[in-house]
Design a protein around this nucleic acid. Structure first.
Lengths: 256, 256
DNA sequence: CGCCAGCTTGAATCTACTCAAATCTTGTGG
DNA sequence: CCACAAGATTTGAGTAGATTCAAGCTGGCG
């Protein structure tokens, strides 16, 4: 087992993530670098977007965690999806869009104005892919809530989060920082906080996860994926990869 | 009570629906008319798209019902959303897209090749809005599955379907044809068929719905929407409507 | 030191599931 | 036109997974 080095990102995680979706050209890289340089800080528990309100400008998550939320009239709350560095917020392709959900920060986050479309074809493609991933995550969420039991829901979500953080270079060796409270996890997974807690305990008992402070380790992600019958969400599931041989897209020996 | 006339649509429902999303210009109308004229028939229980496979061409639903489905390794099945006339299938904005879910016909359906983007700005806008609606329906589905109990889930889904069919001119007076079996409804709502049945009975007992043969009537849609704390999904929730006075978009006296 | 949010545990209850069988529909062939 | 099969709906009884309510614990922080 390798020594878990403190992650000092060589590239900005947000840029790393977009680059993993579509190879970025020089124009895209410089536009992103310029945008990211002007990032601003938003404290935890603030709303970046409010459902039904106009979207001021599309944002790019630079650091921290946020969530898309829907609140019901009676106070019930559903977390629709989580937003991580490299995710784009509020990028719509129709005129004068309104937010279809509230986006709230979970931790302190860094955001910047997302470079406009049309600067670089590669960037546009990365945005499109990012959007395709977002839809894939919504679909995964529907399937979790509709078909999986509490244990499976939690396992599936944690595996997804690990996967996404790895793409941005923010997790390795199955370990990452999980900043949400159990109550937020419960709101995401359609469970009560009490049952969420019991489910976490069950995963701990099985030695599937180690969760202490805000640090989560999935002990054996590949095994857990297999046990859950879960297929990781790849770029290669979104589009036909340009050239199967020349495309040494990343790190792992990933078949599909 | 008015005699339920057989609906002879003055316009093609598919075109009516797209026109309701964005006012169509002459180019859009003629392109759609030409496309729809070449519609083809697909029997019930066929797959229009298969998850992970390449999307041959984007399709426009002309008539009938279809569903986006995700199947798990162990046979569990989740219906992600329903596809109705006027809905577009497989329109992605990235290169060489793969289907992110299987699309299967529920009834016999009519489909045609969707006119390409770029023919008319109005049509592009309608496509974009259509896509925004699709996302809104996914979000609604997540909220249903995550936060609502069986009764609420069913009520919410039926109200959504009524709303969508009304836009296409395929329902009026709260009545429409519901072609799915109770098992399919169960797969959509994350319930077992047995419990789906009991839930339907409960709605019948309350006189909230009348369901016989395949004909569903929601007795008082407005009341039910209010009871459920449900807000209908409008175009006006997607975008800032161009001009609030000149925009006599449709039929009903709809406030927001 | 004491407060407060978040986490943990217990016990009772309830919603939805499972298994099983009966009944109703619909389409098909004789 | 009836008999039959296959699919779909309905009902019953027992069970399991998740909720509710309530209380106790823990750790970080002013």
């Amino acid at each position: 087992m390798t020594e878990p080095l403190p992650l000092i990102p060589l590239v900005e995680p947000a840029v790393a993530r977009l680059a993993a979706l579509a190879p970025l050209d020089a124009a895209a890289k410089s536009a992103l670098a310029a945008a990211v340089r002007k990032w601003r800080n938003v404290p935890a528990r603030r709303e970046l977007l409010i459902e039904g309100r106009e979207i001021a400008e599309p944002l790019l998550m630079v650091k921290g965690w946020a969530a898309r939320i829907r609140e019901l009239a009676d106070g019930r709350r559903q977390i629709l999806s989580f937003l991580l560095p490299g995710d784009v917020i509020g990028l719509c392709d129709h005129e004068r869009p309104l937010a279809n959900s509230t986006v709230a920060t979970i931790t302190e986050v860094g955001v910047c104005t997302a470079p406009k479309r049309g600067i670089s074809p590669a960037l546009d493609e990365a945005y499109s892919l990012s959007h395709a991933f977002e839809e894939a995550y919504l679909i995964a969420q529907i399937t979790r809530l509709g078909q999986l039991n509490a244990y499976e829901r939690l396992a599936d979500l944690l595996l997804e989060l690990l996967e996404r953080l790895e793409i941005a270079g923010l997790a390795s060796g199955g370990t990452f920082t999980l900043p949400m409270t159990q109550e937020m996890l419960a709101d995401a997974l359609g469970l009560t906080p009490v049952h969420m807690n019991r489910t976490i305990q069950a995963m701990r008992r099985d030695n599937s996860i180690i969760l202490k402070n805000r640090s989560l380790t999935i002990v054996d992600p590949d095994l857990l994926n297999r046990q859950m019958g879960r297929i990781p969400i790849h770029v290669s599931a979104m589009r036909i990869v340009p050239s199967p041989i020349a495309a040494s897209s990343g790190h792992g020996p990933d078949e599909r």
